[in-house]
């Protein structure tokens, strides 16, 4: 098991390297640079700035310098907010993003699986149809549309929840962003769970379990749940990725001080250091989450463990 996890970890290193390299060069291919404003800067200042950030060297040299620093955990300086390094800025935004993203992830899993099992147990009857409708809403409405609708209903009309802002981390403030972020994933996970459980309950070992006189609850709980979750778990890795990209939009709409906002600003301003830093951070997070998913997979299915 440990060997398995370690081996998976080692294989992610080349993946990270390819992704970093691709990001680095694509970003530089885009026209414009961090110091191209409305008014062009005087040449002398421009040259000084370029020299300071190594922008006067060849692209390959810049790339090698960047990689060298990266190995020491240094994501370099921000090109726009000169007072902060990229790492410092990320650390400021991180707690907010992780709180909202993590809560949404947990909510997706718990609510999604529960709704899926309920959907199975009441399949093709009223509760299943109701869940189906809620789920479909979550799937068809994009978050940039869902967020303002929720803000209007729960913030302005009903005045139950604040429309936006962090509010010192009060629970009421994060309810709306978390729900908006999680809803599409609750939807997908619940549909996956329901379909998977229907299939599992038709399998031969469930028939064996029934022939042994086990109660329905213990059949679902002990014999059907783990195999049911296998496809669900495969979805969790990509879901974590969607959650993070979704959080960029949602943080901006709800005015949360997470790293999403920095990322969008940085991209608009061609802040090479900041954009790359955020991308790398997200990548590591996604890779780690996928690793967790793989380990979870092995825990769920003993047949994966032994290979």
């Amino acid at each position: 098991m440990l060997t398995y996890a370690l081996r998976r970890l080692l294989t992610t290193i080349p993946v990270l390297w390819v992704a970093i390299t691709a990001c680095f060069f694509i970003l530089r291919l885009a026209p414009g640079g961090p110091f191209d404003g409305e008014r062009p800067l005087p040449d002398a200042i421009r040259q000084n700035l370029a020299a300071h950030y190594n922008l006067d060297r060849s692209l390959v040299e810049q790339y090698l310098i960047y990689l060298g620093k990266l190995l020491k955990g240094d994501l370099g300086p921000s090109f726009i907010n000169q007072d902060f390094t990229v790492v410092e800025q990320l650390m400021i935004g991180l707690p907010y993003t992780l709180t909202v993203g993590g809560t949404a992830f947990l909510l997706s899993i718990v609510a999604g699986i529960s709704a899926g099992i309920l959907g199975y147990m009441y399949r093709n009857s009223f509760p299943d149809y109701l869940l189906g409708i809620v789920v479909l809403t979550g799937l068809v409405l994009p978050n940039f549309l869902l967020a303002p609708i929720f803000q209007l209903i729960f913030g302005l009309k009903l005045e139950w929840l604040p429309v936006g802002g962090w509010g010192g981390g009060a629970a009421v403030n994060i309810v709306l962003p978390v729900v908006v972020l999680a809803l599409p994933h609750v939807a997908r996970i619940s549909r996956l769970t329901r379909a998977s459980m229907i299939e599992v309950m038709h399998s031969h070992y469930i028939r064996t379990a029934r022939s042994r006189g086990l109660s329905k609850a213990s059949i679902i709980w002990r014999h059907a749940l783990k195999p049911t979750l296998t496809p669900v778990v495969s979805y969790l890795g990509p879901a974590a990725g969607f959650l993070l990209t979704g959080s960029l939009v949602v943080e901006t709409i709800f005015g949360l001080p997470g790293i999403g906002r920095y990322f969008i600003n940085a991209a608009l301003n061609r802040d090479y250091g900041m954009v790359l830093g955020t991308v790398i951070f997200y990548m590591i997070l996604i890779v780690v989450l996928n690793l967790v998913v793989d380990v979870l997979y092995a825990w769920l299915d003993p047949r994966v463990r032994s290979t």
């Binding site: 399998s203 031969h204 070992y205 064996t208 299915d301």
Partner: peptide, 11 residues
Amino acid sequence: FQDPLTGLTPH
């Protein structure tokens, strides 16, 4: 049952 591989819960 016939097939003891699919007939026992693999997990």
